[in-house]
């Protein structure tokens, strides 16, 4: 019989590996290869190809490196916290299932679905002095006729205002994608287990704190780590709003040196140097978060 013969060499224990193999090959070709390439490059002199740490030194000496680092740091730490809290609140709201919650959920998803360029278009047209936001304020009577607020700032605007604006715009864009994960996690919690909390004397807040959130922990870790990883890589919305170099952030520097000042002779060194440094920061932050939040311990227990 064909079937049995085949079964002998096509061992069932091998099947999962065969199914997973394409992914591994794919990652090797189109993820590992570029990663290795860029890491090697970052240790090489762009001209001679000799081993050097000069690229990193150049980056660290870049006058925009530390501003970019701190801007990124501030944006990430505030926005991840803010987005998580708001997304959690919203997902608990949607979990209640009120009349119209389905439509509400869909509307909430729209900012997530929007392409970054569309988001850029929305806020660029909204935040300019003659944009729709000021127009709306005039129509509402909040702003006097003909007056305007310079949301995007003037050269003298303090930096924290610009950062606040970036954080708010980013929150508008990103909260839905955090919320989606949390809603899914909530909906997958067994209902009775939560109800048991109420029956045995819990108020909403106690049940939330002692039962819902602990059970949601793996979901929360997933949502936060994904968010953390992409928050550190913020740049496009900033460039669309402010252009290059006005509010430097780490990834923006990579694109800046790769696209905007290609001709510059330090550009290749800067590009690879920044790339590897950013990758290092993202990985370190994600692993640190997972470690601190106890995701690895859970791995061992189960």
């Amino acid at each position: 019989m064909m079937g049995t013969k085949r079964a002998r060499w096509f061992s069932p224990t091998l099947t999962p590996y065969l199914l997973v193999l394409p992914v591994l090959l794919y990652y090797a070709a189109f993820w590992l290869q570029p990663v290795v390439t860029v890491v090697i490059q970052s240790f090489r002199d762009p001209v001679t190809g000799a081993f050097t740490l000069n690229n990193f030194a150049l980056v660290l000496q870049d006058k925009d490196f530390w501003p970019a680092f701190w801007n990124t740091f501030i944006i990430v730490s505030i926005s991840v916290a803010l987005e998580f809290v708001v997304a959690l609140a919203l997902s608990l709201l949607i979990y209640r299932r009120f009349w119209g919650s389905g439509i509400f959920f869909f509307l909430m998803l729209i900012p997530m679905a929007l392409p970054p360029v569309a988001t850029g278009a929305i806020w660029k047209t909204g935040l300019t002095a003659h944009g729709w936001l000021n127009s709306l304020l005039i129509h509402l009577g909040v702003l006097a006729e003909g007056k305007k607020i310079y949301w995007l700032g003037t050269p003298r605007t303090p930096k924290w205002q610009l950062l606040t604006l970036i954080i708010l715009v980013d929150a508008w864009t990103v909260i839905p994608s955090v919320m989606v994960i949390l809603v899914a996690g909530l909906q997958n919690l067994p209902r009775e287990v939560i109800e048991a909390g109420y029956v045995f004397g819990g108020t909403y807040w106690r049940v939330l704190r002692d039962i819902i959130l602990p059970m949601l922990r793996p979901t929360i870790q997933t949502a936060v780590v994904l968010r953390l990883i992409s928050a550190i890589q913020i740049w496009l919305i900033i460039v669309l709003l402010f252009g290059f170099s006005r509010v430097p952030v780490l990834v923006e520097r990579i694109v800046y040196y790769h696209e905007e000042v290609r001709g510059l002779d330090i550009a290749p060194a800067m590009t690879t140097g920044y790339t590897v440094i950013v990758a290092f920061i993202v990985s370190a932050a994600a692993l640190l978060y997972l470690y601190l939040s106890g995701a690895f311990e859970g791995e061992k227990a189960s």
Binding site: V23, P34, V35, V38, Q41, V251, S283
Partner: peptide, 24 residues
């Protein structure tokens, strides 16, 4: 490891992969 690969793949900035991909 496969489960975590989603995260690892994302930890390397998209831009950072795009640049060497030009050559590949």
């Amino acid at each position: 490891a496969l489960k975590f690969s989603v995260l690892f793949v994302r930890m390397f900035p998209g831009v950072a992969i795009a640049i060497p991909m030009v050559i590949i």
